[in-house]
Simulated scan of single mutants.
Amino acid sequence: MPRFEIVTHVMASPERVFDISLDVDVHSASMAGSSEKAVGGVTTGGLKLGDTVTWQARHFGIRWRMTSTISAYDRPGHFVDQQVSGPFKRWHHAHYFRPYGHGGTAMSDVIEFVAPLGPLGRIAELLALRRYMPHLIRVRNRYIRQVAEAPPPPD
């Protein structure tokens, strides 16, 4: 089973980074390149334990839908989203947030996934998904960092 971890340093509190990471609108904006948007379940605002969201996106020229749920939630340290239905045989994404430096956060994404279709899925993992999936998470994390580090709007 492919597994990877990406650590991103953000100059904002763990609480702020945690909340931004669970915001459906931020996620959609971060994945604009693949036209990802929420089309079912919670479709705007913040997610919490037990919430489900159905995402629609275009990857590799194909439209995909994936429904995931927030299966673990311990603010501001950790949450997990995992696929309930969708393109993967398994998708488990654990998010960790710990203080780092002077007011910053080390945000860690630990992802395990299995492509469908047995041997054909393993070939897809080797040829494309092992590079593509970390790239998507890095794009997402750059956007989260940008939002989290931006000064708050004036009152």
Rank of each mutant, 00 (worst) to 15 (best):
L49P: 03
R122W: 14
K89F: 13
V147H: 09
L136G: 00
E149D: 10
R3Q: 14
H93K: 05
S71E: 09
T44I: 04
S34H: 06
A29K: 12
V114R: 11
W91P: 00
R16N: 08
R145V: 05
A124Y: 13
G41E: 12
P134M: 01
L22R: 11
I6C: 07
I123H: 08
H135P: 01
G77C: 08
R98M: 10
E36D: 13
S30R: 02
R98D: 08
S85G: 04
A38S: 03
T8A: 04
H95T: 08
G41W: 04
R145C: 03
D155K: 15
R142N: 01
R122T: 14
I137T: 00
Y96P: 03
M31R: 00
P116D: 15
A148T: 08
R58L: 06
I137W: 01
P76D: 11
R58P: 02
R142K: 02
S28K: 00
A94C: 15
Q146K: 06
I20L: 06
S108Y: 09
M11E: 07
V39Q: 09
W64G: 01
Y73W: 06
G118A: 14
I70C: 11
V80T: 11
M66I: 12
Q83G: 02
G46V: 13
E149V: 03
R3K: 14
I6R: 04
S34T: 12
S71L: 11
